[in-house]
C-alpha cells in the first residue's frame, strides 16, 4: 500500500505537524511519499520522494493549482490513500481531490484500526467508525491524534509544474491586529466559555483573574459574541497557552479549544455537565453552575 502525504508550510517554514502524517501512514501500514507546496529552505527530514511545488511560484495556498499538481502525482504514483492534516489547508483541499477522483473522504480521523477509520462527532460526545467504499480514499487526520514520526534523511526532490489556471487569487496574509495580548507567558489563566451565559457574567471571570493575579482567556463563541475581546481567544485559531493553572469556566472542551491548552500545568474545569468532553483533559472537573461556583471560589481566595 502507498500513501501520498500532503505536507504543509507556512510563511516559508515546514509545519511540524507534517510529521504526524507519517504517523498516520504507519497506521495504514503503507509506504509514504510526500507532496509539499514549500521552498527548499524548509524541507522535511525524510529520505523518500518529495514532490515539491515551489511556493514562491504557486503560493502556499492555491486550491486550483495545488489540486492540479496533487492530481498529477496521484496519476503517476497511484497511491491508495491521500492523507492531509485536518487543518485550514487540508479541510479546503481534501474534498477537491476526493471530488476530482470521485473517491470517498473521511474527515478528522482520530484513529485507524484495520483499515476502518475512527472519527469524532457531536463535539466528541460520540465516535463513528467509517469505511470507505472506493478502492482509494482521501483522509484528513485530526492534528495531535497521531504520534509524529520523523523519518530522517534528505528528500529526493521532484519539482512540480503546472500551467493550470486558477479561479482563486491568493492575495497574501492579513497581518494580525495591533491590539494583540500575549497569553503565552501567563502563569494563571481563567477562561470564559459560552456557559458563562451573558456578557455581564464575565465580570466573575475578571474578578477571579484579578484576585489570583492571572489573565483572562475565552473560547471562540465568547469572543464571537463580543463578550470578551478577540485577542483573548484560546485554541487552534487563537492563542496557545501553557499556564501553571488553567481554569475553564463553562467550556465544553471542543478539540479546537483543547489544542490551545494541552500544555497547561493543572486544569480545573467548571461545568454543569458531568459528561462534558473537557473532563477528558481536566485534572479536576467541578460539576457546578459557574455563576454560583465562581463567587464562592473568589470569596474563599480573598478570605481564606
Amino acid at each position: 500500500m502507498k500513501t501520498l502525504l500532503i505536507g504543509e508550510s507556512r510563511e516559508g517554514r515546514l509545519l511540524n505537524a507534517t510529521y504526524e502524517l507519517f504517523g498516520a501512514s504507519e497506521k495504514l501500514k503503507s509506504e509514504p511519499i510526500l507532496f509539499l507546496a514549500g521552498t527548499e529552505a524548509g524541507l522535511p527530514s525524510y529520505a523518500g520522494t518529495l514532490y515539491l511545488a515551489d511556493a514562491k511560484k504557486y503560493g502556499e495556498y492555491n486550491p486550483d493549482l495545488h489540486k492540479n499538481m496533487i492530481l498529477q502525482v496521484v496519476e503517476k504514483e497511484n497511491p491508495d490513500y491521500v492523507v492531509f492534516l485536518h487543518s485550514s489547508y487540508g479541510r479546503d483541499l481534501a474534498p477537491r481531490i476526493a471530488a476530482s477522483l470521485r473517491i470517498g473522504q473521511v474527515s478528522e480521523v482520530v484513529d485507524i484500526v484495520d483499515g476502518t477509520f475512527e472519527l469524532t462527532c457531536c463535539n466528541a460526545r460520540m465516535h463513528r467508525s467509517v469505511r470507505v467504499s472506493t478502492p482509494r480514499a482521501v483522509v484528513t487526520i485530526q492534528p495531535g491524534a497521531f504520534s509524529p514520526i520523523r523519518p530522517g534523511g534528505t528528500p529526493l526532490i521532484q519539482a512540480m509544474q503546472t500551467d493550470a489556471l486558477s479561479s482563486i487569487e491568493f492575495a497574501g496574509y492579513e497581518p494580525a491586529g495591533p491590539e494583540q495580548i500575549d497569553l503565552g507567558k501567563a502563569g494563571i489563566i481563567i477562561s470564559a466559555g459560552r456557559g458563562i451565559g451573558t456578557k455581564e457574567n464575565t465580570a466573575l471571570i475578571w474578578n477571579l483573574a484579578r484576585i489570583l493575579g492571572g489573565e483572562v482567556g475565552a473560547s471562540r463563541p465568547v469572543v464571537d459574541a463580543g463578550w470578551i475581546e478577540h485577542s483573548r481567544q484560546i485554541g487552534s485559531t487563537g492563542q496557545t497557552v501553557s499556564p501553571e493553572l488553567y481554569i475553564a469556566c463553562g467550556i465544553s472542551g471542543a478539540i479546537q479549544h483543547l489544542a490551545g491548552i494541552k500544555n497547561s500545568g493543572y486544569i480545573v474545569a467548571i461545568n454543569k455537565d458531568r459528561d462534558a468532553p473537557i473532563g477528558e483533559i481536566a485534572d479536576a472537573l467541578v460539576v457546578a453552575d459557574v455563576t454560583q461556583f465562581l463567587p464562592a471560589l473568589t470569596e474563599r481566595v480573598t478570605k481564606p
Partner: peptide
Amino acid sequence: LCELEGGLKGIVKLR
C-alpha cells in the same frame, strides 16, 4: 478572509 491557524488569515479573491 479565510481563517487559518493561530489568528492568521489569508486574503482570497474569486469571481
